[in-house]
Amino acid sequence: MTTIRQTAVSLAAFLMLASPAMAQSRSLGPATGTVSIEQVQAGFVASGEVGGGTLRYRGHSYPITVGGIGLGSIGASRTVASGTVYGLKNRADLAGAYVQLKEGWAVGNQGRGSVWLQNDKGVTLRLAARRQGLQLSLGADGVLIGFKQ
């Protein structure tokens, strides 16, 4: 019963957070960069993820690190995501803490999903994800993005 309650709470939180994010997609303004991320995720209600990727901004590529914890995932998968960056005024604004809204699934080599991330500096990432493994995700995470040295 507790798992059902936790799942219902996660779903409700996701819907409350996702509605403004989805509506905001029309008002994000022009794209300011692109990002690609590869990470491994695992979870049973609570989840964790670790990985890295590349930011492409103003004609340059920068390696980044990605890690986080959250709620709303069962199983494990390898995720490759790519998409658009909005609101990035300078490269340093990408680094920091993000709220991530996610939904997706993976069964074997088949899997899809979408991910929205937003930080307190006004930077938003809108990503499409390909997943491999066995996982169902619908929830929110706290994610840290940094630059590799």
Results as ranks from 00 to 15, higher is better:
residue 42 A to N: 03
residue 102 K to H: 14
residue 18 A to H: 11
residue 2 T to M: 12
residue 121 K to P: 01
residue 74 I to R: 07
residue 127 L to C: 03
residue 84 T to S: 11
residue 77 S to T: 11
residue 27 S to R: 14
residue 116 W to K: 07
residue 18 A to Q: 08
residue 62 Y to R: 05
residue 20 P to Q: 12
residue 30 P to Q: 08
residue 122 G to I: 00
residue 145 I to Q: 04
residue 134 L to N: 06
residue 95 A to D: 01
residue 28 L to H: 03
residue 58 R to M: 12
residue 142 G to F: 14
residue 7 T to Y: 06
residue 26 R to C: 09
residue 126 R to E: 08
residue 102 K to R: 13
residue 142 G to V: 13
residue 78 R to G: 05
residue 91 R to P: 01
residue 4 I to V: 12
residue 74 I to F: 03
residue 57 Y to D: 00
residue 68 G to D: 04
residue 58 R to L: 13
residue 72 G to R: 02
residue 140 A to H: 11
residue 139 G to W: 04
residue 98 Y to D: 04
residue 1 M to G: 11
residue 37 I to D: 09
residue 108 G to K: 01
residue 27 S to P: 02
residue 84 T to W: 05
residue 108 G to M: 00
residue 112 R to K: 14
residue 24 Q to F: 02
residue 137 S to F: 07
residue 8 A to K: 03
residue 36 S to C: 03
residue 117 L to P: 04
residue 100 Q to K: 12
residue 132 Q to F: 07
residue 59 G to R: 01
residue 96 G to R: 03
residue 83 G to Y: 05
residue 1 M to F: 15
residue 2 T to H: 12
residue 32 T to C: 04
residue 101 L to H: 02
residue 134 L to T: 06
residue 12 A to P: 00
residue 115 V to H: 05
residue 37 I to C: 10
residue 119 N to P: 01
residue 54 T to W: 13
residue 24 Q to H: 15
residue 26 R to I: 08
residue 46 A to W: 15
residue 67 G to R: 03
residue 132 Q to T: 05
residue 47 S to D: 13
residue 27 S to F: 15
residue 46 A to Y: 10
residue 36 S to H: 07
residue 111 G to P: 00
residue 12 A to F: 08
residue 139 G to M: 09
residue 138 L to P: 04
residue 119 N to Y: 00
residue 88 L to T: 01
residue 28 L to E: 01
residue 54 T to V: 13
residue 33 G to H: 08
residue 16 M to G: 15
residue 142 G to E: 10
residue 10 S to K: 05
residue 145 I to L: 10
residue 30 P to M: 06
residue 130 R to M: 11
residue 16 M to Y: 15
residue 123 V to C: 06
residue 12 A to I: 09
residue 93 D to G: 02
residue 121 K to L: 04
residue 24 Q to G: 15
residue 97 A to K: 12
residue 113 G to I: 03
residue 2 T to W: 13
residue 37 I to G: 02
residue 35 V to L: 08
residue 44 F to Y: 13
residue 108 G to C: 02
residue 10 S to W: 07
residue 129 A to R: 02
residue 20 P to A: 05
residue 8 A to N: 12
residue 25 S to W: 12
residue 108 G to Y: 06
residue 143 V to G: 09
residue 5 R to K: 15
residue 101 L to E: 07
residue 16 M to N: 08
residue 9 V to G: 03
residue 69 I to M: 09
residue 121 K to T: 04
residue 45 V to T: 13
residue 72 G to C: 11
residue 133 G to Y: 00
residue 112 R to C: 04
residue 116 W to Q: 13
residue 69 I to Y: 02
residue 22 M to E: 14
residue 27 S to K: 13
residue 111 G to T: 07
residue 140 A to C: 09
residue 114 S to R: 14
residue 46 A to H: 11
residue 105 W to M: 09
residue 127 L to W: 06
residue 137 S to R: 14
residue 46 A to D: 04
residue 76 A to G: 09
